[in-house]
């Protein structure tokens, strides 16, 4: 369970989030829509205390993310765009093991988690392969496995489809669908809504740092169309 309570946040005095309240239940598949600069990334980075609110509070499973970032980062796995820049090791297995190693787990438990995370993204048994020899879609899936190895209750993805070709995009979508079916909560921020809406339980949209849409996915299209005419104010960072 991820809860935002009246969260506001500014970068260099420019407000990026303004009084955001939101609650995401375990197992929910949420799509976060909105133009570039609307505050999507900033919102997501509050889920695991990569950013902390200026006002308000973010709770993960009832505990303040700021007070216990390790718990928040374990419960909320996060994958960013540009998977190439998120790897810490040259080979798949060593990279996926990084998170569980940081948690101080026993080696046998780490190996079990690496195997199971790779299984979840259809890369079983490929621990010793070099990451820079993989396709873009495979790299995106290794990045997801790196987050899954923490055994999070929620998986949060920030623009995971950027730079992926169509087959790669489909392979990532299929993995997300499977994960959701197995009970992992999924939050996907994207401006590319093709096919994702079909998987989602709920759609949230942001504009100018505020939540402007929060609807079950079947009613979302209409609501999204109503905001798509708005021209978002330009922001230097989000």
């Amino acid at each position: 369970m991820i809860e935002f309570r009246s969260v506001s946040f500014a970068f260099d005095d420019v407000p990026v989030l303004e009084d955001v309240s939101l609650s995401i239940a375990d197992g929910e598949f949420v799509v976060l829509a909105g133009a570039n600069g609307s505050g999507k990334s900033t919102l997501l980075r509050h889920c695991n205390a990569l950013l902390t609110p200026d006002e308000g509070e973010v709770l993960v499973d009832g505990v303040s993310a700021e007070a216990d970032p390790v718990a928040a980062r374990t419960s909320v796995g996060m994958v960013f765009q540009h998977p190439r820049d998120q790897f810490v090791a040259a080979t798949i297995g060593a990279d996926v093991a990084f998170g569980p190693e940081n948690l101080g787990l026993e080696r046998a438990e780490i190996d079990r988690r690496v195997a199971s995370a790779l299984d979840a993204v259809n890369l079983s048994g490929r621990e010793t392969e070099r990451i820079d020899a993989l396709s873009g879609g495979e790299q995106a899936r290794v990045a997801i496995a790196g987050a899954l190895a923490m055994e999070p209750t929620h998986l949060v993805l920030d623009e995971p489809f950027t730079g992926l070709d169509e087959p790669a995009r489909q392979s990532v979508l299929e993995r997300l669908e499977d994960l959701a079916a197995d009970g992992t909560g999924v939050v996907v921020a994207t401006h590319d809504l093709r096919d994702v809406l079909a998987l989602a339980d709920r759609v949230i949209a942001m504009a100018d740092g505020r939540l402007v849409v929060d609807e079950p996915s079947e009613r979302a299209l209409e609501a999204l169309e109503s905001i798509s005419v708005r021209v978002p104010r330009s922001r230097s960072r989000c």
């Binding site: 990569l50 216990d68 970032p69 390790v70 718990a71 374990t74 940081n102 948690l103 101080g104 787990l105």
Partner: peptide, 10 residues
């Protein structure tokens, strides 16, 4: 276990 994790600061 989790409490013993010492995060490297940002």
């Amino acid at each position: 276990e989790r409490n013993s994790v010492e995060l490297v600061d940002a």
